Computed example of a mutant assay.
Amino acid sequence: MQRRTLGILLAGSLFAATAAMAIPVTPDPVRDSPANTIQISWSHTTRSDGYVDDTWWATRDRCAPDYLGERLLCDAVGLLARGASRTFEAKMSDDMGLPLADRWGLMTAKNSPFIMSAHVETPLGIAAVLGFYRAALEKRGWSEDDGAVVEPDRAVVVFTTSDGPALLRLARQDNTTIADLSLRKPLAATARIQPPPGQVRLLLGNKTDQAADITVNEQTIRLAAHAGEKLIDSDAAADKLPDSQKIDLQPGKYNVTLKLAGSAAQKRQFEVAANETWGLLVGPEGAPLPMRLY
């Protein structure tokens, strides 16, 4: 009798689960946005002369289910992913000394003898992200300089810190706020990753198993699988890049498109200033992984 009852309950549960899988739901951007999966990478370089270089990058997918059963699965998996995300965020903030805006979908961070920087992409609006950074950086003892530029789709704020001047740039693109926070250190980088005076240097690499095309303002460069994949790990790795994977640009805004075979093209617009060096990696599923190196 007990076996029969158990069988009936199991069958009923399976029937209910199957039925739930077929019940359509209305998309809810707020509820369905938590991370469903998270990919994290970290590298640490040390030398006998005390040189230390830490690099982080992470991406996470978002769940937008069409059916109730998919939403239930998203909720369960997302709960685990958010736990891992909180652990990662706390560790990165402690190790790097830079805050990480909430609901991020992609982030990169660098702490080298030349610079401390972070790039974050989040669906939060400009005002919310700017408010978060102002509060978080004030707690760290950073003071905001006069003359901040705050517009509906962008913001530029300069801070004074005990380690030198720092810069926060925000831009709104396609329902995403892109935040770039950087503090350049006094030590000069190696000459081969420094840009020509007054210009910007962009270094390109590919972490995937497929060839990738990177287009920067109509100039397209084909990268073989894993070409320059370690360029953001250290200045020595960046120095080894061939000239074909280096582009010198004028300061300004640039449209960048990344394309892997069989995947949809991913597009971004980046703002860069004079005397900056950036690395741009083709990440998982063609995701662009930008990182300020100098």
Rank of each mutant, 00 (worst) to 15 (best):
L9M: 12
G12N: 10
A16H: 06
A16W: 02
A17P: 03
T18I: 12
A22W: 00
A22N: 06
V25D: 09
P27E: 12
D28F: 11
T37N: 07
I38V: 15
I40C: 02
S41V: 08
T46K: 07
D49V: 12
D49Y: 08
V52W: 01
W56C: 07
A58N: 08
A58V: 13
R60F: 03
D66C: 02
G69R: 00
C74M: 03
D75N: 10
A76P: 06
L80Y: 09
R82N: 07
R82S: 05
G83E: 12
A84R: 05
T87N: 12
A90E: 15
G97P: 14
W104I: 10
G105C: 05
T108N: 07
N111A: 14
F114N: 08
I115K: 07
M116W: 00
H119V: 10
L124Y: 01
A128S: 14
A128T: 15
F132T: 02
S143K: 13
E144L: 11
D145M: 12
G147N: 03
V150D: 06
E151N: 09
F159P: 14
T160L: 04
T161E: 11
G164V: 11
P165I: 01
Q173Y: 15
D174R: 13
T177H: 01
L183G: 14
K185Y: 09
L187M: 13
A188P: 05
A189D: 09
T190A: 14
P195W: 00
P197Q: 11
P197R: 12
Q199T: 10
V200M: 11
L203K: 02
L204R: 00
D213I: 05
H226F: 10
E229I: 04
A237R: 04
A238S: 06
D243K: 07
S244A: 15
K246S: 13
K246Q: 13
Q250K: 13
P251R: 00
Q266A: 08
Q269A: 10
N275C: 10
G279W: 01
L280F: 03
V282N: 01
A287W: 00
P288F: 01
